[in-house]
Each structure stands twice: as structure tokens, then as C-alpha cells.
Simulated assay, not measured.
Amino acid sequence: MYNSFFNDFAREAIATGIVLILLVLLRIITTKLVRRYARLSQTVERRTNLVIKYLHLLINILLLVALVIIWGVDAKDIIIAVSSLATIVGVAMVAQWSILSNITSGIILFFSYPFKIGDTIHIHDKDFPVIAEIEDIGAFYISMINKEGELVIYPNNLLLQKGISIINLESKSDSEFTD
């Protein structure tokens, strides 16, 4: 039975093996590249792991597509499955666009690296201006502590929409720290 399976599907089995080896290699290479970039830009480990997780998810999706093509699943069946899945995900994403926007913004902030933990920033928001020191940068938001010691949580997507100044507090007096 094993010989019969291998004889009937030798090409597919070999291609699957090659794809799996490529998967492992791509995951190792992307992990090393992101970690090297993070080390050079002094990025926080938690942010680095988050970007690596996103890239691994993308690689896994590409692997799944490759395996479907290799094993010759009927294109009509793939289109039906993908369109059904896209419909479900689309409805969910319309309801959760803010979460997706914050994740995307978190990735952009990771690679553009405009500020780091410990920087004091001024967010130029006419309704809610913020001057605070960055305590943590997450996938969805940054945590900051303002002059009064209050914890301020600010969504990543708004950081990309507002003007931001990076302030060097050592050169500022308390009177200059206010709006």
C-alpha cells in the first residue's frame, strides 16, 4: 500500500517535502533578518517577536496555498472556499477595522521606528494634546506616563495620523512641559 501511494503521488510527495523545507528555511531567514534589524535599531524584544509572528503567519498561508496547488485541488473548489472565507473575514473586519488598523500601524511603527521607549513625545491633537514619556510600545497601542504620573494609553493608528514632536526633557524646564 505504501509503495502504491508513493508510486501514484511521487511528484506531489517530493514537491511537498521541498515546500516544507522551504517553509523552515524562510521562517529561519525572516526571523534572523527581523532580529538583526531590531538589534541595529534597538527595538524592544516584544515588538520584534510580534513582527516575527506576523511574518510566520504570512509564510504559513503561502505554504498552504502552495500545498493546495501541488496536490491539485480543483480551482473551482478553491475559489468557493476562499470567497466564503473572505466573506466571513470581511464581515468580521468591518466590525473590527480599528483592531486591524492598530495592528497595521504597529507594524509600520516597528519598521519606521520614529520614537523609542523612554522618549518623551508631544502628540499634537487639538482635542486631547498629550505630552508624556513612552513606557511601552505594543501591537495595538503605546503606554505613556504624563507629568502628573497618569498612565495614558494611545492607539497606534492615531499616532500615524497626528503630528508628534520628540522632546528631550533634560533640556526642558517644568514650565515648558505644559501646553
Score class of each variant (00 low, 15 high):
Gly90Asp: 14
Leu22Ala: 10
Tyr2Thr: 10
Leu158Arg: 15
Ile78Arg: 11
Val91Phe: 15
Ile80Ser: 11
Asp174Ser: 03
Leu40His: 07
Trp71Cys: 02
Leu40Met: 09
Pro129Tyr: 15
Phe9Asp: 01
Leu85Met: 01
Ile52His: 04
Ile117Glu: 12
Asn60Val: 12
Tyr54Glu: 08
Ile166Met: 13
Thr48Gly: 01
Glu12Val: 06
Leu33Ser: 06
Ala15Ser: 12
Ile28Glu: 14
Ile78Lys: 09
Thr104Phe: 10
Leu64His: 09
Arg36Gln: 08
Arg46Ala: 07
Phe140Thr: 10
Glu45Ser: 07
His124Glu: 14
Ile99Lys: 06
Ile164Gly: 11
Arg35Phe: 03
Leu23Ile: 11
Ile28Asp: 06
Gly163Lys: 15
Thr16Lys: 14
Glu12Asn: 07
Glu170Met: 15
Ile29Ser: 10
Trp71His: 05
Thr16Asp: 12
Leu67Lys: 04
Tyr54Ser: 06
Ile28Cys: 03
Leu63Phe: 11
Ser165Asn: 15
Pro129Gln: 12
Ile164Asp: 09
Thr120Gln: 05
Lys147Arg: 05
Asp119Thr: 03
Phe128Val: 08
Glu45Ala: 08
Lys53Tyr: 08
Leu22Cys: 11
Glu45Pro: 02
Ile137Asp: 05
Asp127Cys: 07
Asn7Leu: 02
Thr178His: 03
Asp74Ile: 01
Phe6Gly: 00
Asp127Asn: 14
Leu33Lys: 11
Ser84Tyr: 01
Ile131Asn: 04
Tyr54Leu: 11
Glu170Pro: 07
Ala132Asp: 04
Ala75Asp: 00
Gly149Ala: 03
